[in-house]
Deep mutational scan, measured.
Amino acid sequence: GKMTGIVKWFNADKGFAFITPDDGSKDVFVHFSAIQNDGYKSLDEGQKVSFTIESGAKGPAAGNVTSL
């Protein structure tokens, strides 16, 4: 299901971020390909987002990341 959280930090050079979920679970890795914005895919620290949890090769990662 959809979860919500806050972007903890975003590394534009490497194209990934971490989200701190609102439910208090541990921070979730985000690859820029999961960001659903049109055009430039970036996130801002402190931004509120919704996302799903996908199981990636290196463990859980956020999918369908959308700005709220």
Rank of each mutant, 00 (worst) to 15 (best):
F29C: 15
F10W: 08
A17E: 00
K8N: 07
V49R: 00
D13E: 12
K14H: 02
F51A: 01
K2H: 11
K48C: 13
L68C: 15
F16C: 15
E45W: 08
G46H: 03
L68I: 15
D23L: 02
G56R: 02
G24D: 03
I53C: 15
K14D: 05
S33A: 10
A17L: 10
S55D: 15
D44L: 13
S25R: 04
E54S: 03
N64F: 07
N37V: 10
A57N: 15
D27M: 08
P21H: 01
N37H: 09
I6M: 06
S33K: 06
D13Q: 09
S50W: 10
Y40T: 09
T4C: 13
N64H: 09
A61K: 03
T4N: 05
E54C: 14
P60I: 03
Q47C: 13
G59V: 10
K14F: 09
K58A: 15
G56N: 09
A62L: 09
V7W: 03
G15V: 02
A34K: 11
P60H: 05
F18Q: 07
A34D: 14
K58E: 15
P60E: 10
N11T: 06
F18W: 14
S67A: 09
F32Y: 13
T66C: 15
V28H: 03
F29P: 03
K41Y: 10
D23I: 03
I19E: 00
L43M: 06
Q47I: 09
A12P: 06
S25H: 04
K8P: 01
L43F: 11
H31E: 14
G63R: 00
E45K: 12
S42I: 10
S25A: 05
F18N: 04
A61V: 14
G24Q: 04
N64T: 10
G1T: 12
K8Y: 02
K2Y: 12
A62W: 06
I35A: 02
G15Q: 13
G59Y: 14
V28R: 06
I35D: 03
G39Q: 08
V30K: 01
G63H: 11
F16R: 00
P60A: 04
S50F: 09
K41V: 12
F51I: 04
L68D: 15
L43W: 10
I53T: 08
K14E: 05
I6R: 05
G63W: 01
D23V: 04
G39R: 05
V7N: 00
A17I: 06
H31T: 08
A61C: 15
D38M: 08
P60K: 02
A61P: 11
I19Y: 00
P60Y: 02
I19S: 00
N64M: 08
F10P: 02
Q36L: 12
S55R: 04
Y40W: 12
I6H: 05
G63P: 12
L68S: 15
D38F: 07
K8W: 03
L68R: 01
V30F: 13
T4H: 06
Q47E: 07
G5A: 01
S55I: 10
A61E: 15
A57C: 15
G59F: 12
I19G: 00
G15A: 08
I6V: 13
V65Y: 01
V30H: 01
G24I: 01
S55L: 07
V7I: 14
G59A: 10
T4K: 05
K58R: 04
V49S: 00
V49G: 00
V49M: 01
A62S: 11
V30T: 01
Q47Y: 05
N37T: 11
F18C: 15
G46I: 02
E45H: 10
D23S: 04
P60S: 04
S55Q: 10
I53K: 05
K8V: 08
S55V: 11
H31I: 10
Q36W: 09
T52E: 13
G15S: 05
I53M: 11
F18T: 05
E54G: 04
D38K: 04
N11E: 04
G46S: 03
K14N: 02
M3H: 08
I35T: 03
V7P: 00
I53S: 06
D44F: 14
F10E: 01
D23P: 01
Y40E: 13
F29A: 08
S42K: 10
T4I: 05
G63S: 12
K2Q: 13
F18K: 08
I6Y: 07
S33V: 06
M3C: 12
G24S: 03
G39T: 07
T52I: 13
T66P: 15
K48L: 10
N64R: 02
I53H: 08
K2D: 08
G5N: 00
V7L: 13
Q36F: 09
V49C: 04
G1E: 11
A57E: 15
G59K: 11
I19T: 00
N11M: 07
V7F: 04
V28F: 10
G39M: 08
K26G: 08
D22Q: 04
G59Q: 13
A12F: 08
A57F: 14
K14L: 05
F16A: 02
G46D: 02
I53Q: 08
K58Y: 14
G1D: 12
D13A: 09
G46W: 04
N11F: 06
L68G: 15
F51K: 00
G56A: 10
T4F: 07
V65K: 06
S55H: 11
V7T: 01
Y40H: 10
Y40I: 10
I35C: 12
D44C: 15
F16S: 02
I6T: 12
H31V: 10
G46P: 01
G1Y: 09
K41G: 10
S42R: 12
V49Q: 00
V30D: 00
P21F: 04
K41W: 12
F16K: 01
S50E: 09
Q47W: 06
W9A: 04
G15L: 10
K2M: 13
K58S: 15
S50N: 07
A61W: 11
F29T: 08
L43Y: 06
W9R: 03
P21S: 02
G24P: 00
G63V: 13
T52Q: 09
L68T: 14
T20Y: 02
N37M: 11
G15C: 15
G59L: 13
F10H: 05
F10N: 02
K8R: 07
A62C: 15
L68K: 03
T4V: 05
G46R: 02
T52H: 07
T20W: 03
P60W: 01
D44T: 12
E54N: 02
K26S: 09
F16T: 06
P60M: 03
V65R: 01
F10I: 15
G15D: 04
K41S: 12
S50V: 12
I6Q: 03
V28N: 00
P21N: 02
E54R: 02
K8E: 01
N11Q: 05
V49H: 01
N11R: 04
A34L: 13
L43I: 09
K48H: 13
K8M: 05
E45C: 15
G24L: 03
K48M: 09
Y40D: 10
A34H: 13
A17G: 15
G46L: 03
F18R: 08
I35H: 03
G63K: 03
G56L: 07
H31G: 07
K14A: 02
T66D: 15
S55N: 09
S67E: 14
T66V: 13
G63C: 15
H31P: 15
Q36D: 12
G15E: 13
G15I: 02
V49P: 00
A34G: 07
G39N: 08
K58F: 15
L43R: 01
S25I: 03
G24M: 03
K2A: 11
P21V: 05
S25D: 05
F16Y: 14
G5C: 07
S42H: 12
D27C: 13
V65I: 10
V30R: 01
K58I: 15
D27V: 06
G5T: 01
Q47D: 09
Q36E: 13
D27Y: 03
K14T: 05
S42F: 11
G63Y: 02
G39K: 06
E54Y: 03
G1R: 07
K14C: 15
K26F: 05
I19R: 00
F51T: 00
L68V: 14
Y40N: 11
V7E: 00
S42W: 13
T52N: 07
F16M: 14
F51Q: 00
D22W: 03
N11C: 15
D13I: 10
F32G: 02
V28D: 00
D23G: 06
T20M: 08
D13T: 08
M3L: 09
E45I: 11
F18E: 03
K58C: 15
A61T: 13
G46V: 02
S67F: 06
D22I: 06
N64E: 13
V65L: 10
D13G: 06
D38V: 08
F16G: 07
Q47H: 07
L43D: 01
G63I: 13
V49T: 01
V65F: 02
F10Q: 04
I35Y: 04
D44S: 13
M3E: 03
S50H: 07
S67T: 05
D22L: 07
Q47S: 11
S25N: 04
L43S: 01
T66W: 00
D23F: 04
K8C: 13
S55A: 10
K58G: 15
G56W: 06
V7Y: 00
G24T: 02
W9S: 07
A34W: 12
Q36H: 12
E54K: 02
G46E: 02
F10K: 12
K48F: 09
T66G: 14
A34R: 05
F51D: 00
L43H: 02
Q36G: 08
F18M: 09
F32V: 09
F51N: 00
K48V: 08
S25W: 03
D23R: 02
T20R: 10
L43N: 01
W9C: 15
S42V: 08
T4E: 06
A57M: 14
F29D: 01
P21M: 04
